[in-house]
Write a protein that binds this DNA or RNA. Sequence first.
RNA 1: GGCGACGUGGCCGAGUGGUUUAGGCAAGGGCCUGCAAAGCCCUGUACCAGGGUUCGAUUCCCUGCGUCGCCU
Length: 305
Amino acid sequence: MTIRKSVVVLGPTASGKSDAAMTAASLQPKGSVQIIAADSMQVYKRMDIGTAKPSETDQALITHHCLDIAEPSERYTVARYVEDVNTARTSIAHAGAAELIVGGTGLYVTALVDGLDMPGEWPEIRAELEANEDTEALFAQLLSLDAEATTKMESNNRRRIIRALEVCLGSGEKFSSFGEGIGSFSPTSTTLIGLRWDRDALRARIAERVNIMMERGLVEEVRALLAEPNGLAFTARQALGYKEMIEHLEGRWSLDEAVAATILRTQQFAIRQDRWFRRDPRIQWVDVHEDPIEEVTPVVTAALE
RNA sequence: GGCGACGUGGCCGAGUGGUUUAGGCAAGGGCCUGCAAAGCCCUGUACCAGGGUUCGAUUCCCUGCGUCGCCU
């Protein structure tokens, strides 16, 4: 059973992609479209304000997948996301609905559109590799095992070197044999719609949105998360807005500093998202100037029909 | 009005009489299949204006302008 139709709405934070997608979905016959979030932080429960998670009202109106599927205290990764997406897709297919993917996490969107196969995990091997402080030696080792993998990373990017080695050593096969990588952009039947803003305009929107998050009680949300018995794990802890409010709540930053840092880092993140997405030639870009709902919804609607 | 300090690339901030002219931040660009709201890499000849000293001045001297502080 396959999904009737697949459309992606992507763009940087605060670009208005969720609003446009939500509006387009609700214009379709009831139940004919379901949304899959491609967002690495909205997967966490109780992280609502800071991740700009779709409201309960929106979720009641349109079925959303891949939201609130992990505890902030647990480790969540792309691999698990791929599994969760498969589950979601099965149910969308059964419902005979179209899937509308909305997201800002480049890797997750890619995983979903291009169907990445995760090579697997070998924690013992990784632990061993991590114990080795000599990054140059690790790189040399990777070079001898899988020279091709080496071309996709700098010689001092420990994290990527270790992962590639983990896979080579663990699977007995070359890391590079597990796929073309992220930049292949093979033809797909999915329609990719990207929202693009003038950078300064987007920066202004982000500043405004962070201020709104503060008014909605971001600090309280973070305080409550910190008070949970298991707290926040590494990944959830690094979410924009959360990381900074933690700095404030633990006394290292004033509230003003935390807010300013959140705004700046979110703006920088948005640019990084832009840079990630713009490599993909399959994306159909929509330049947004004022109102994403008005300007983007028609494009999404057209793609859904 | 007087005295003093300062004037360095978008910002902060070292420094030097002449081979490679710090660093940080911001900005721009790039990489990427298990932390991805993460990680990594690349890109900066600027010294307020005018005159002088000097083989040579961003660095020394003078003047002007500007900023800041103190004083009357």
